[in-house]
Design a protein around this nucleic acid. Structure first.
Lengths: 225, 225
DNA sequence: TTTAAAATATGATATTTGTCATAGTTTAAG
DNA sequence: CTTAAACTATGACAAATATCATATTTTAAA
């Protein structure tokens, strides 16, 4: 039986601000789940009723647009918490979460976390700090979406994934996304992504092997206009 | 000398969760300022070192894009707080604030607010809730930017301003923005805004009088494709 | 392994949006 | 009230991106 107190993952998120006693309580009420690749974790409009702590794997947070396309708003990985926003705002979630790889998560029920948010100001300040950081990142995304070309946004998405999630031994991006997923990050048509990736290949900025992508020239990709 | 305890504006923001004693303390350390239309309140990269409570007027929060254009990320009005994010994250602000009308604001120094964030969990939860709401709105903006046409985004910007800030007696939008400001909300060229507004006029969706805009057909504007 | 389904690739073309040029209008300073 | 500066307006054209069609490759199921 896993134990929050000794869980390494906790170091990377706000749960590190909980006291020993609080962690023991959380440990007792949490449930662990394995989630398969492609599986929906929660859907837009649902009551999430708690917080997920990601022990292993990667998932995408998406929002359905009026035109029927999904927009990927954030990628969530090992160490991250998920679900705090709707927890705090007491509303149904505005995002869907879908696993992009096999995942291990722990689910902590709402009222247990709320106890700590109300009683432990270190913890609530830590959550507040993470949310302020998310908001800052969201500002950057808004500016990029509004002001940059599809080409630039794709280059940045690749660099972001490289920087944030790293590469395998062969230098391939560790996060493997379909062209459609990239389209849903960048906000464009799948064909446009395919076209631009082909161009990047011709320009020796990247190489691909099936769905896997390897960035060959980080600097040049950063200079894309 | 104005007094936070009796200030009506407080009802609209997180300061309503402060106790009587805390309000009296805040009242004693705050400074009131008048800000002229067009004046910069703080600039991207500055240390804000406190929180602004807007007593009167409207301002825009902008972020400079790599291509040299400003992006308007949020409009802040009477009743709103401004500066919480950088306060909490202990970083310089990522946004600039510029008055769009004559403004009355109160400035509360950082360490006074931090005391309350640490000591009053009702207050910190309230701030947290507001930030979660901002984040949810940011998600919507990202999806709109990514998936909708310039035309649709402009229609939505007009509707948003109508809904959020209301109209004058003559039915004109109360917030008066230049075409360039609209371009910086929507993320497009100023000429595109001018063109689309002209089209909206031809289609009897709006009328204009100088910079003032009046929405004539709310429903049709909402149906813009 | 075979085969159907899904994903990727690419061409042709339409649509949207950006850029540059220039003219008219409004606003605010003197 | 006058006038320069700022803003709004519109045309012509270029560039970026979307859409539709179709071929090829990859993936995963039988």
């Amino acid at each position: 039986m896993s134990n929050c107190e000794q869980c390494i993952v906790r170091q990377f998120n706000s749960l590190k601000s909980l006291t020993k006693d609080e962690l023991i309580r959380i440990s007792g009420c949490k449930t662990s789940k394995t989630i398969k690749k492609g599986q929906l974790i929660f859907d837009e409009g649902e009551n999430v009723n708690g917080v997920y702590c990601i022990r292993e794997g990667i998932c995408k947070l998406t929002k359905l647009s009026a035109n029927g396309r999904d927009q990927i708003v954030k990628l969530v990985v090992k160490g991250d918490l998920m679900g705090q926003r709707s927890l705090v705002s007491e509303e149904v979630t505005n995002l869907s979460a879908t696993a992009l790889s096999e995942m291990e998560v722990c689910f902590i029920p709402k009222h247990e976390i709320m106890k700590d948010l109300q009683g432990n100001s270190n913890f609530s300040l830590d959550v507040l700090q993470h949310m302020a950081k998310d908001l800052r990142e969201a500002d950057n995304v808004i500016v990029n979406m509004a002001q940059k070309s599809v080409r630039q946004r794709l280059a940045e998405a690749l660099l972001y994934i490289h920087r944030t999630f790293g590469t395998t031994d062969e230098g391939m991006l560790r996060v493997i996304l379909s062209r459609e997923d990239y389209a849903n990050i960048v906000g464009t048509a799948t064909e446009s992504i395919i076209r631009i990736l082909s161009q990047f290949k011709k320009d020796d900025l990247i190489t691909t092997k099936g769905k896997q992508i390897k960035i060959e020239d980080l600097e040049a990709l950063g200079r894309i206009e």
